[in-house]
Amino acid sequence: MAKKNKNSKNHIGQDGNGFLKDNFDKKELAQKHKEYLGMDVPDNYFSISNNNILKSLPMEKEQKRTVFGLKPMIAYPIAASIVLLIGFTIWLQNDPTTIEQQNANVEQINSMDVYSDDFLVSSLLVEDADMDEFIDEIILNEIIVDAELSEQQLENIFINSLLIEDSLINSYIDKSLIENVVL
């Protein structure tokens, strides 16, 4: 037990009003409590208490590492699904029927490639004569014939219009002549 502070009476009792003035603000807490309230603590109490408190704490154990921080309840089904997915993919890759089908597809694609290549190359190598022939055919069959046909149509329209006009004139002449004669 700590010794009593014999000066404490002087601090408090000197002056009744002085007790409440801020004349010990900077004093240590322990000294203040001892002097004015008579409260003491065992020697080295705070360092011992510090250790005791630290010992009594429910220290948090280091958390176990989990897959992406997921709980086992969630992590295990996800892991199983991934394993199944990978396994299924590998199985499909090694399946003989699938391999045959894949080979057939590859061959088909290759042949298409060859055909398209030939077509492209051959289109670049057309003979001039063939090209002239092709152009003549087009001109004769389509352009000239079309032009002739359209010309004929125009002539027909012209002739028809002339015939109509003549008949109208004739009828007019006839009518007017008769009228003239009669009148």
Binding site: M1, K3, S8, K9, I12, K34, G38
Partner: peptide
């Protein structure tokens, strides 16, 4: 661990 004298007791 109460170490007070009469004056401290009076204050209390």
């Amino acid at each position: 661990y109460f170490d007070g004298e009469e004056i401290q007791l009076k204050l209390h």
